[in-house]
């Protein structure tokens, strides 16, 4: 093993960059949002890429996780660690429940069904006072375990990094397993998967719940970080952004979600800086954002239909084989 796998190098570089960034950047809000998006999109990429099921409403499960934390801490006074653990569990259980009817839909219908779910969750949050009503829930306490309490942004970012690593690790293991093979198989042909002994409906439900658990975890963490949860915290546009991140990064790849989240978040941040120059009209920001989404999707679908990660991987493989190397991924 004298040859170093370039992918491992990239992973190490990304990990080091992720660990250094919280100590050199000033305001960590952007970095935190990016990491949370990466957690959500990793789950979405698993759902869309491996299992072949669409979701335009992943924000619904982010919201469920956030509300779990908000209600658990402010209404019931539960310890922060407990509610953060509960957030993905509640989101996953919610997904398993609504998934029974929802996952009977396919393709575009499922996409719209999940979008409708998000709108229903938003409506429930704004009408039920228990869930915050129109004003939302504020005053969520800082996260902490025992006596140590998070007093600034940095520990949140480090926690998010650790959880992202955990999510990637779990995803990697699940994809490369008996269960994961069944999931990939049903994306190709439900009939053939069924006849090979894969319980298709249950498999879809489990993977839907799992992607919702990731979203709920990110939502729970964001509730502590912000620390405020309202129906407006989870706009439909954000759920579309998750899909764009997943597609741009590369559906059905382990690192696609992270790459897409980093790239699209950075791009949006740059656009934000550009459009907030004083001499420019205030409407420019949203216009630029929508235009960028459209442009990104068109460019990605035209030139990298598989997304960035698979395109780079195959380009690297070609480069290696041209050099006569025996390196394989």
């Amino acid at each position: 093993m004298d040859r170093v796998n370039p992918r491992n190098v990239l992973v190490v570089v990304a990990a080091v960059a992720g660990c250094v960034a919280p100590f050199v950047m000033g305001d960590l809000t952007f970095l935190m949002r990016m990491l949370l998006a990466a957690i959500v999109v990793t789950g979405l990429s698993l759902l869309m890429g491996y299992a072949g099921q669409a979701s335009l409403g992943q924000g619904a499960f982010v919201a469920v996780g956030a509300v779990t934390v908000a209600v658990g801490t402010t209404r019931w006074g539960l310890p922060p660690l407990l509610v953060l653990v509960a957030a993905p569990i509640v989101a996953g259980a919610f997904a398993a429940l609504v998934g029974v009817p929802l996952l009977r839909l396919r393709g575009h219908y499922l996409a719209f069904g999940t979008l409708a779910l998000l709108l229903m969750v938003q409506t429930a949050m704004s009408t039920l006072d228990f869930l915050g009503g129109a004003f939302g829930i504020s005053g969520i306490p800082a996260f902490g375990v025992g006596g140590s309490v998070f007093t600034d942004q940095r520990p949140y970012v480090l926690l998010a990094l650790g959880l992202l690593a955990l999510v990637l690790f779990v995803t990697h293991r699940i994809v490369d397993s008996r269960f994961g093979r069944g999931i990939r198989a049903l994306a190709g042909s439900e009939t053939a998967a069924e006849s090979a002994g894969v319980p298709v409906m249950r498999g879809k439900l489990v993977i839907f719940a799992l992607s919702a658990m990731y979203a709920g975890l990110a939502g729970g963490l964001s509730a502590f970080f912000t620390p405020y949860v309202s129906p407006d915290s989870f706009p439909a546009l954000e759920s579309f952004t998750y899909v764009i991140m997943a597609v741009v990064g590369g559906l059905g790849t382990l690192w696609g979600g992270v790459v897409g989240a980093v790239l699209v978040s950075t791009l949006l941040q740059v656009l934000n800086l550009v459009s907030s120059q004083p001499q420019l009209p205030p409407t420019l920001g949203p216009i630029l954002q929508y235009a960028t989404y459209g442009g990104l999707l068109v460019v990605a679908l035209l030139f990298m239909p598989g997304g960035i990660v698979p395109t780079v991987q195959s380009a690297a493989a070609r480069a290696v084989s041209r050099r006569g190397g025996a390196g394989r991924t």
Partner: peptide, 28 residues
């Protein structure tokens, strides 16, 4: 009706679903 995006070996491994049992928790 083969499973696209999967190797031949992975395709055949799916066939073993019928008499194996490890689930998602065991996978993680």
């Amino acid at each position: 009706r083969v499973f696209p995006g999967m190797s031949l070996l992975a395709n055949v491994m799916v066939g073993a679903h019928a008499h194996t049992r490890a689930g998602v928790v065991a996978a993680a």
